[in-house]
Lab assay of single mutants.
Amino acid sequence: MEVRTIKVFTTVDNINLHTQVVDMSMTYGQQFGPTYLDGADVTKIKPHNSHEGKTFYVLPNDDTLRVEAFEYYHTTDPSFLGRYMSALNHTKKWKYPQVNGLTSIKWADNNCYLATALLTLQQIELKFNPPALQDAYYRARAGEAANFCALILAYCNKTVGELGDVRETMSYLFQHANLDSCKRVLNVVCKTCGQQQTTLKGVEAVMYMGTLSYEQFKKGVQIPCTCGKQATKYLVQQESPFVMMSAPPAQYELKHGTFTCASEYTGNYQCGHYKHITSKETLYCIDGALLTKSSEYKGPITDVFYKENSYTTTIK
């Protein structure tokens, strides 16, 4: 009895394709271990004539594949690729409408935090270190965002349907971005203890939790000093293409032309909904596939993004 075979390709990165001759009487799992086709788990399936010449994702289970996976995804987590594939199996079914010149995501599976993050990423200057993220990001900007969303979920250790947080998501993504040249110098002034300067680099240099107003941050924000008295913390120097200011959701007025974009969060910790506000020729609110415009805006804002380049204080 002759062994019926077909020729397929296996890959971990969709760049390096490895030619395989597979036995049609055995499952993919018996031949390769966990195997995925377009995100779908085909591990328990036997090869079919229609699979001839198709590319299958496999887990990096030998040295060659491990090197290829690390170079593309910059992670050695053995569960990463499987999590990416199972997320992709959902995100490829989502709709990605162009809204006001940006790629958004039609609401499904509690994905409003991903839509808000995706919209924000198209408006701030950011370059990702893992080629996987950078490639998928370019495709997302062009309207094909399924891979990018699935990668975000995998890097953030999230599953489809789980509630997510924009600030946490951005923080994970910033860790995989090139923020080497970003720098922030802060000064804390206390009447009792004097003053202390701190220099922050990388992710810490672009994120701040405690106030939404970048102007206020430049002037000074009140913080408790270690001595128990009130101290003032203010920005001395900022070198970065953008800054992200966050605070627990509270009524906040966004003035046209003073910011790049913002995240609105309605609801409580267990259950809520994100919308995205962007400042173009007027203010726009993007909620999944829905767009509304207004000249002014007041609502429960939790993150505001500002364009920056270089700032030095005039406070002496």
Rank of each mutant, 00 (worst) to 15 (best):
T43H: 11
T292H: 11
K229D: 15
Q270R: 11
Y36P: 00
F56D: 04
S246K: 05
P47W: 05
K183F: 09
N309M: 08
K275D: 04
N110L: 00
L254T: 01
N187E: 07
G288E: 01
L173R: 04
L283W: 00
I6V: 15
S310Y: 12
I15D: 00
D109R: 09
S171G: 11
F80G: 02
A250P: 00
L153V: 11
E71G: 06
F174H: 06
S79L: 12
Q134F: 04
Y269L: 13
L291K: 05
E308F: 08
T120V: 08
A115F: 04
N100C: 15
K191A: 13
L254D: 01
L200I: 10
L37A: 12
K191T: 15
L153H: 02
K7F: 11
P34F: 05
A146P: 03
S240K: 04
D180I: 07
H48V: 12
G272H: 03
D23P: 09
V203W: 11
Y214M: 08
K95C: 13
C225E: 01
G299H: 00
I301T: 02
V22K: 04
P97M: 07
H176G: 04
Y274W: 00
L119S: 05
G194M: 07
Y172R: 14
E68D: 08
Y36S: 06
L235H: 01
T5R: 13
S86P: 06
T211H: 02
I45F: 14
E239L: 08
Q175V: 02
R167M: 03
A262F: 00
F305C: 00
V22C: 14
L200G: 06
C156P: 03
A142S: 11
S213L: 07
E253R: 10
L186Y: 15
A262H: 05
G33M: 06
E253Q: 07
M170W: 03
K95T: 13
L133C: 03
S86F: 10
V21D: 14
Y265T: 07
Q175K: 12
Y84H: 08
Q175L: 07
E281D: 15
C190A: 01
G161S: 03
A231M: 03
Q123W: 08
K201I: 08
L65Y: 09
A140E: 00
P97N: 07
A150N: 00
I277N: 06
A262C: 03
Y28W: 13
D38G: 11
G101I: 07
T198K: 12
T312R: 15
M209P: 01
D303W: 04
H256P: 13
K229V: 06
G161V: 01
S295L: 14
E162G: 00
D62C: 12
K92N: 11
V166R: 04
Q222W: 05
Y138V: 15
N178E: 13
H18A: 11
L133K: 00
H176L: 13
F80E: 03
A40G: 13
T35G: 06
F305H: 00
N157W: 07
F242D: 03
L88M: 05
A40I: 12
H256R: 14
P224M: 15
F32E: 00
S104Q: 09
G39F: 10
L290M: 12
K127Q: 15
N178S: 12
L118N: 06
W107S: 07
S246M: 01
T198E: 15
T292L: 04
K293L: 09
N147S: 12
D303S: 00
P60T: 07
K233R: 14
V304K: 03
E125K: 07
E296S: 15
M244Y: 01
P34Q: 07
E308P: 08
S171Y: 15
L283F: 07
K275C: 07
T192V: 11
V166I: 02
L81A: 00
L200N: 06
S213T: 06
L81I: 15
A145W: 07
F32P: 04
Q230W: 13
F32T: 14
I124L: 15
K92M: 08
T232L: 12
